[in-house]
Amino acid sequence: MNAPRDKSYADSLNKALTDPAEAAAYLDAVMELGEPAAVLVALRQVVKAHGMAEVTRRAELGDKSLFKALNENGNPTLDTVNKVLHAVGLRLSVAPAVHDTEHA
């Protein structure tokens, strides 16, 4: 993706994260890191790209609940994560882990 030089990274990221396929790939890649704090930051970025107020409305969460769940010290429940993902056009799923057969 070639962006104009005067366009900021944050603007490009926000635009990309409004696309469900891009947001899903982004969250999936971050989850591979195995760092809960990084997942929380990535989820917060996806929410910001869609507009915090709009996601709050769609997820049927209180303003303060969403902000608290997604802040740097947040610890959102599975229910909250599920509601947020649905509000941005995504869903939570589980897939088999890919293991290196030489180390199995």
Rank of each mutant, 00 (worst) to 15 (best):
V30D: 05
D79T: 12
A24R: 12
L40F: 08
K64I: 08
T77M: 00
M52W: 07
L13A: 12
T56A: 05
A69F: 08
K68R: 15
A16W: 08
L13M: 10
A3W: 15
L33I: 09
A10P: 05
A87S: 12
A49S: 13
N73R: 13
G62T: 01
K83R: 15
A49C: 12
A29N: 10
P4D: 10
H103T: 09
A21R: 12
A87W: 12
S8D: 12
H99G: 03
E22W: 04
K48F: 04
S93F: 07
M52G: 00
A16E: 14
T80N: 06
V30H: 08
G74S: 06
V46R: 01
L27H: 04
A95P: 00
G34F: 07
V46K: 03
A25K: 11
S93L: 08
E22K: 11
P36L: 02
V88N: 03
H50N: 15
D100V: 11
D100L: 11
D100F: 10
P36Q: 02
V41P: 04
L85M: 13
V94M: 15
T18C: 13
E35D: 15
R57C: 00
L70R: 05
K68G: 01
H86P: 00
D28M: 02
P20M: 05
K7N: 05
A42N: 08
L90T: 01
N14H: 14
G89I: 02
D63Y: 07
T56I: 10
K83P: 02
E102L: 13
A53G: 04
V47S: 03
A21C: 05
R91L: 03
V81K: 00
L66P: 05
E35R: 15
R58V: 00
L33Q: 15
N2G: 09
G51V: 05
K64S: 15
D79F: 07
R5T: 07
V47D: 05
E60M: 11
E54V: 13
T101R: 11
R58A: 06
S8P: 13
E72C: 02
N14G: 08
T101A: 13
G89D: 07
D63W: 06
N14I: 01
A23E: 07
